[in-house]
Nucleic acid binder design. Structure first.
Lengths: 193, 193
DNA sequence: TTGTATCGGGTACATTTGTACCAAATGCGT
DNA sequence: ACGCATTTGGTACAAATGTACCCGATACAA
């Protein structure tokens, strides 16, 4: 039996259990015991696969980033071979919106990590939290392709900030996902007619 | 001696101690003992003025909202009697940007509360977390005054979302406050020429 | 078969946290 | 001066949490 693969699968299972607990009860509720119970394993097993809680937290964050990247990949694959920039941008920004339970959970946990990173240096340096930078460059590239006349970096920052802010307000229940998407599309209309 | 006033002052002192701890070490680090130590009083005193930790948390949130409202009032007072909408909007949105240590602390703690509210119903219903709604109405009013031709509610949502998102990215260190303000002013230029 | 390393489970322990209880001190009216 | 209510302080306690330790079981190598 390939023990290595099995080990990685176990680690993923446990990390996903942590993300489920964090999504439903908050990241502070993701204790070692709660994660073990959610994963259906013993406390010692969690300790066995992750020597310390910090390692588990970091691994779960990486797993979260992997899931996000995978979902984006699927969105791109669903589009044609030469999609229009406007189409790409709308897909990316829609993915960043908490519409269903899964994306709500993602937003909640990711924001929890971001807040935690403010006071935890070990988290702050983690590459997964630099994802917005890569996203900004990508959006800027698409924008400059569609509208070479405007300041792509600036507009990309504005667009992503608006997307993040709208996502937060949807999470807070201040507006519905549809309203948020309307606002976002309105901004997109200005940029990519 | 007016004991009532003294009592309120004490409660404010303790609440501010909680906000300081939360800003520097995270809201999860704001334990009863940590707050007492920060306030320079005994643990029992904190218990005396706030029967339970939840009450302390709620009161501190209200105090945070009061401080924010006070700062906004000062910004308005510093402007002329009949300020131009563009001026008002820029002041409001600048206040929402984490430029100095104080506004950084405010952003950090407020976001911590928002994240907590996702899983804590007692917090979710708190009026202080509905502040963005009032802010949106206010911004929409200023916008419609300057540009009656556009959809004020929609543009206000967009502007506030962008402001919140930019604030978050400044907190995360992805860009400087100056860069964020540049982006924000660019959007304002589009709306209020 | 025997030894050994990995996987799995249960229990124990020191620390921390919210809360409760009991004692001293201080201010005020009588 | 005395009694009483309020304020302040110290200690105690049950629950939870991260971590460490000990004991089987199982699969592979010699």
């Amino acid at each position: 039996m390939a023990r290595g693969e099995n080990r990685d699968q176990r680690r993923r299972d446990i990390a996903e259990a942590l993300l489920r607990v964090a999504a439903e009860r908050g990241l502070h509720a993701a204790t070692m015991r709660a994660v073990a119970a959610e994963a259906g394993v013993s406390l010692h097993l969690v300790q066995h696969y992750f020597d310390t809680k910090e390692q588990l937290m970091l691994y779960a964050l990486e797993h979260l980033a992997r899931q996000m990247a995978e979902r984006l990949r699927q969105r791109f694959a669903a589009m044609g071979s030469e999609p229009r920039p406007r189409e790409v941008l709308e897909a990316v920004l829609a993915e960043a919106m908490p519409t269903d339970a899964r994306s709500r959970a993602f937003h909640h946990v990711y924001t929890s990590y971001v807040v935690l990173a403010v006071t935890e240096p070990a988290l702050a340096v983690h590459p997964a939290l630099a994802a917005p930078n890569a996203m900004r460059d990508f959006v800027a590239g698409q924008l400059s392709k569609a509208r070479p006349d405007l300041d792509a970096a600036l507009e990309a920052s504005a667009l992503l900030a608006m997307s993040a802010g709208l996502g937060a307000s949807v999470m807070g229940g201040q507006q519905s996902p549809e309203q948020a998407m309307t606002v976002l599309r309105h901004q997109l209309d200005r940029l990519c007619p």
